[in-house]
Structures are given as structure tokens and as C-alpha cells.
């Protein structure tokens, strides 16, 4: 880690997408990493993985995004997916109240399995379905204030705010991490709590160059 990265990114952040099944996690992932949307995409079994790099303050940040199955059964097996995650987008469907009610359960899930310093953002997806809305923006906002989470509403279908949701969380993580780097005297890889890496710098040298600087992957 002492060597300066001779690679195509400065930071690698792992971000997980969680939330009830059918809220649109996979479509948020495909919209952000491949600019694709499928009205009916296959249900996710286990985990899916994609990457994309973005620029923040002149640094190239590579996001490694993990999408997980929503059903209860898959939680135990997915707990491994939280390992090393520095960010979580907790997604609910603005047209399905129950998916918002379950947000608390997902927060507990994160508390149980993820690093305590994980940056969490609540995402109300399917904002294009205005006529079917059953969770008000205000309710979600006040919940987030209470829980200390950031909040955004998105539509993976028409792309609204998808880019922004990922940009925000990655920027937040970057700010926390770069501050920690400054705080660390030797500038070595910052760690938190039980020694889990919160960022991984230049560990992945063989990554295809196509992913560099905002390119999409597949």
C-alpha cells in the first residue's frame, strides 16, 4: 500500500444496495453503471456486482456496487456482502408503504452486519409513479432527520436523481475518508474499528480500462 497507485483510480469504495424485493435496486444499479433500465428485470438471487468510476475533487473514485436479494431468506447469506462496505443505499418504493415501514428493519440489519461507520442514504425510488405515491416526501425526510440519514427520491425508469444519489454518497464517503487520511500521520490506508478496510486503494490492478473515469461497465 505504500506505493502510489499506478492505476486508473485513486479510491475504491464498496457500496451496497439494500431494501425490500421489488423496490428497484437492480434497476438503480443498471441505470448508474450501464445506463440501462428494464421494466421487468429478473429477480436478484444472491448478489450482483458492478463498478463505475466517477470524479470527485479531481480524484477518480471507483465505486464497487453490490446489489443484493431482498427476501428475508437471503439475508443471512448476504451478510458477507456487507463486509468492507463503506456506503449503503437503502431503497424503498414510494408507491408501497410497507417497503418504507421495513426501512427500520434494514437499518437494524446494517447495524448488525455492517461497519458502524457506514454512510447510509435513504432512497425513495419510483418517483415517476406520482399518481401511485403512498409515502410522502415529508414523512421520509423527517424520518431521515431523526435517524441522521441523507435522503433522495429517484426514478431508475426516467433517470431522475440516480446519478445524484450515487454521487452524493460517494462524495460523502470520500470526504470522510480523505479527512481520515489527513488525520493519519503516515497516510497509510485508514481503518476503522475492527480493522476492516473502509477503503481499498490500488488493490485491483487488472481492472479493465473501460471502467475508467465515468465509463460504464458490463
Amino acid at each position: 500500500m505504500a506505493n502510489k497507485p499506478d492505476d486508473d483510480y485513486d479510491y475504491l469504495f464498496k457500496v451496497v444496495l439494500i431494501g425490500d424485493s421489488g423496490v428497484g435496486k437492480s434497476n438503480l444499479l443498471s441505470r448508474f453503471t450501464r445506463n440501462e433500465f428494464c421494466l421487468e428485470s429478473k429477480s436478484t438471487i444472491g448478489v450482483e456486482f458492478a463498478t463505475r468510476s466517477i470524479q470527485v475533487d479531481g480524484k477518480t473514485i471507483k465505486a464497487q456496487i453490490w446489489d443484493t436479494a431482498g427476501q428475508e431468506r437471503y439475508r443471512a447469506i448476504t451478510s458477507a456482502y456487507y463486509r468492507g462496505a463503506v456506503g449503503a443505499l437503502l431503497v424503498y418504493d414510494i408507491t408501497k408503504d410497507v417497503t418504507f415501514q421495513n426501512v427500520e428493519r434494514w437499518l437494524k440489519e446494517l447495524r448488525d452486519h455492517a461497519d458502524s461507520n457506514i454512510v447510509i442514504s435513504l432512497v425513495g425510488n419510483k418517483s415517476d409513479l406520482k399518481h401511485l405515491r403512498s409515502v410522502s416526501t415529508e414523512d421520509a425526510q423527517s424520518f431521515c432527520e431523526k435517524e441522521g440519514l441523507s435522503f433522495i427520491e429517484t426514478s431508475a425508469l426516467d433517470s431522475t436523481n440516480v446519478e445524484k444519489a450515487f454521487q452524493h454518497i460517494l462524495t460523502d464517503i470520500y470526504h470522510i475518508v480523505s479527512k481520515k487520511v489527513l488525520d493519519t500521520e503516515d497516510g497509510s490506508r485508514p481503518q476503522i474499528n475492527d480493522g476492516r478496510d473502509i477503503i481499498v486503494v490500488d488493490d485491483h490492478k487488472d481492472e479493465d480500462k473501460a471502467n475508467k473515469k465515468g465509463g460504464c461497465c458490463s
Binding site: 463498478t51 487488472d206 458490463s218
Partner: peptide, 10 residues
């Protein structure tokens, strides 16, 4: 064999 973590996963 040529790939790293991300390449293998994808």
C-alpha cells in the same frame, strides 16, 4: 487467470 477480483466477479 488474467483477471482481478472485479473481472472474476463480472
Amino acid at each position: 487467470l488474467k483477471g482481478d477480483f472485479a473481472v472474476i466477479m463480472k
